[in-house]
Simulated scan of single mutants.
Amino acid sequence: MTTGCRPAAAPPGADAPRVGAGYAACHHGEILQGVFRDAHGHGRVAGLVTLPMPGLGTHAEFVRSPGAAPEELWVTPAGRTKALSAASLAVRECAARRREAACGGRLRLSGDIPVGLGMGSSSSDVIAAVRAVADSFGLRLSPRTIARLAVRAEQASDPLMLDGRPMLFAQREGRVLEVLGDALPAAVVVGCAVGGGRPVDTLSLPAPDHDDEDVRAYERLRALLRRAVAEGDPALLGQVATESARRAQQRLGHDEFGPLTEIAARTGAVGVQIAHSGSVAGLLFDPAARRLRRRLRCCADALEDQGIPVTKIFTTFTTSEEFPHGRAHSGVDRPAGPRQTGGRPAVPAL
């Protein structure tokens, strides 16, 4: 198995290559991340709730070469070793289900997710690769199976294989701890980049050391987020995001956290959200707030004045758009979330 772009040669008489396609979206960091009690109320497990972000993702194409050795796997661009590992695992999984021999092939990835900013670029690569391999076998793997393969491929995975509902997800175990509801409360997010937009080396950060008080605090935030989702309350959503980001500063230490919270208070944002393993951040606004466009413009201007570049303005609104996961993944509806009755704010991406 290699990361080069030279195609694997199939032996004479081998079947024709079979092509599959896959897609996975990204996210904008976390609304909540910490350590929680497991389903039985005892023990600790790391978990997170991500903030979905529309419009960016990874497309994958896998050209399967029946008859080629399973080790003859190639990926383009070179260096995407996690996605290649996921493709290898997915080939063996799908071949076993089809009662076929595992084989080699070529994986090609394309997309527009910035790398190293905490937006789930590696998870997106991995999940798109698994879906493309499955599609080349004419299969559609369940989210649970994709999560299992993703964790094996990259040790921890974001929950991008799920259906878009807000879920507390154990990223190192690949399992859902709790489905919090149907959709996050509607909010408008002014996205920005802290730390100069430089990638964060999470391996260089001190390992989190959570005690019982931390678990109790995160469980309170979990309950508050559950209530925010049930009531569709963006203010509670912002409260959870801000407190989670504040607690993460003990490890991340972003210089911009103070200015972000000050700008949020001055412009009427309901909260501040920061990726716990990257440099993307966002200020959350209630879409029903008075003079919303003016608030958003004032927020963007204030961020720029502080030297914090604005990246994109987007919403948490979920649509019924179908994402292309290849032939075996077509016709999959995404649940429709709450819509703003007055329409989305006509704010341009910056």
Rank of each mutant, 00 (worst) to 15 (best):
G20L: 13
A187M: 00
A186E: 13
A153D: 05
T58Y: 04
A69D: 13
E173N: 10
M167R: 14
A128W: 04
C26V: 09
L109I: 08
A186K: 01
A281N: 02
A187Y: 00
L139K: 01
R99C: 08
A183W: 06
F62W: 01
G79N: 08
V133L: 01
F36S: 11
E178V: 05
V133M: 05
V133I: 04
A207S: 13
V310N: 08
E100A: 15
D333E: 14
H59E: 15
A9L: 14
L203W: 05
P335S: 12
R131T: 05
A78V: 09
P309L: 01
R106G: 13
V189D: 02
R334S: 15
V310L: 07
R175P: 06
G20C: 11
R152K: 15
G105W: 08
T242I: 00
T318N: 14
R344F: 15
Q249E: 07
R64L: 10
P52M: 09
P345Q: 07
T318R: 15
R140L: 10
T202H: 12
G164N: 00
I308F: 05
E173F: 08
L205A: 13
G41C: 02
R251T: 11
H42P: 00
Q306Y: 08
T261H: 02
R108G: 06
R293P: 04
H276Y: 08
R44E: 04
W74Y: 08
R144A: 15
G4E: 15
D158N: 00
I308G: 08
I113M: 04
L284Y: 03
